[in-house]
Design a protein around this nucleic acid. Structure first.
Length: 300
DNA sequence: GGCCAGGACTATG
DNA sequence: CATAGTCATGGC
């Protein structure tokens, strides 16, 4: 395949229901996020296409398009297509939000949120292993500490590239994590139990026994297959379905953050339990994942 | 300093 | 199926 430089910038059309600034608030919520970086209104992210590094710089002009500059190298048409596919998935550009907004307008809990955060997309996690690690690290600890652990994990076991004096990271390969001992992860202050879970999952992913495509091709059994994994319960399974596998009906009803968000929105005295959330979400159908993401956004 | 944090596992009624 | 104890440490 021959490489011939095309435009320095790739233009990706976006739906009318898209606001870059709303997505940016979510993406910019932690200073310890290791997998992308903000420079003003631009996001930089390192991705791999067919084993090659592409450092993307993404921004938007008046929410009409996304502009993607590839900073570190030229790209061919095939690579350009892969880059567009990645970014479209990241910002969930293929989903038409109009049905969600119509539904939300008649829902006491959602109406304000969709008005306030109009154009927010469900930010996706491309790699299954990354989604699982992020979810498991986040179990039962506050989000700030989860980011600390996640950053340590990425910086310790991920590969990186340097551009213009700054370092950009890939999420660690499963094969790298598969060969670790729990002791090594414990040194990062990951609990013994979680360390065992992560290594076990890494082995399955590295062996090809656990992969995104297979789960997506069998949407009816994906949740139960995820929950058969050690360390993956109802919350983690739903979280991965929502953030990685693109299941619009995924709903992590056990989520403390989600419960707090609902409590705040409805002015409840105490947090609703999972049963209460299931009742509230009964009419949300295939928009439960989006409702969850908008409720998450209300916590920032 | 005490309570909480974007849970899951295991053991026990 | 429902409840209780355990993990395990930072954040606020």
């Amino acid at each position: 395949m021959q490489h011939h430089p095309t435009h320095p910038s790739i233009i990706v059309p976006v739906p009318r229901e898209f606001r870059f600034a709303q997505c940016a608030v979510y993406l910019n919520r932690s200073p310890r996020e290791p997998l992308h970086e903000f420079t003003g209104q631009k996001i930089r992210k390192l991705i791999a296409v067919a084993g090659e590094d592409f450092l993307l710089e993404i921004t938007s002009k008046r929410d009409l398009h996304l502009h993607i500059a590839v900073l570190n190298r030229p790209f061919c048409e095939t690579e350009k297509t892969a880059i567009i596919r990645f970014v479209s998935e990241w910002f969930d550009l293929a989903t038409d939000l109009n049905p969600f907004y119509t539904l939300a307008a008649g829902d006491a809990l959602l109406a304000q949120l969709v008005s306030r955060y109009f154009g927010l997309r469900l930010i996706r996690i491309h790699h299954l292993f990354q989604a699982l690690v992020w979810a498991i690290l986040g179990q039962q600890i506050n989000l700030a500490f989860a980011y600390t652990l996640f950053q340590r994990f990425v910086h310790r076991y991920g590969e990186s590239m340097t551009f213009a004096g700054r370092t950009y990271w890939h999420f660690p390969q499963a094969s790298r994590v598969a060969s670790l001992r729990p002791q090594e992860l414990q040194a990062l202050q990951i609990t013994t139990r979680k360390s065992e879970y992560l290594i076990d999952l890494a082995r399955r992913v590295a062996a090809g026994a656990l992969d995104k495509a297979t789960l997506q091709q069998n949407p009816g059994t994906a949740k139960e297959r995820l929950q058969q994994l050690r360390g993956v319960g109802p919350w983690t399974a739903n979280y991965v379905l929502m953030r990685c596998l693109g299941d619009p009906s995924a709903f992590p009803a056990d989520d403390i953050g989600l419960q707090n968000a609902v409590k705040n929105q409805l002015g409840l005295r105490q947090k609703p339990d999972r049963a209460h959330l299931q009742i509230l979400a009964q009419g949300w159908g295939d928009w439960r994942a989006y409702a969850t993401f908008y409720l998450y956004r209300s916590l920032l």
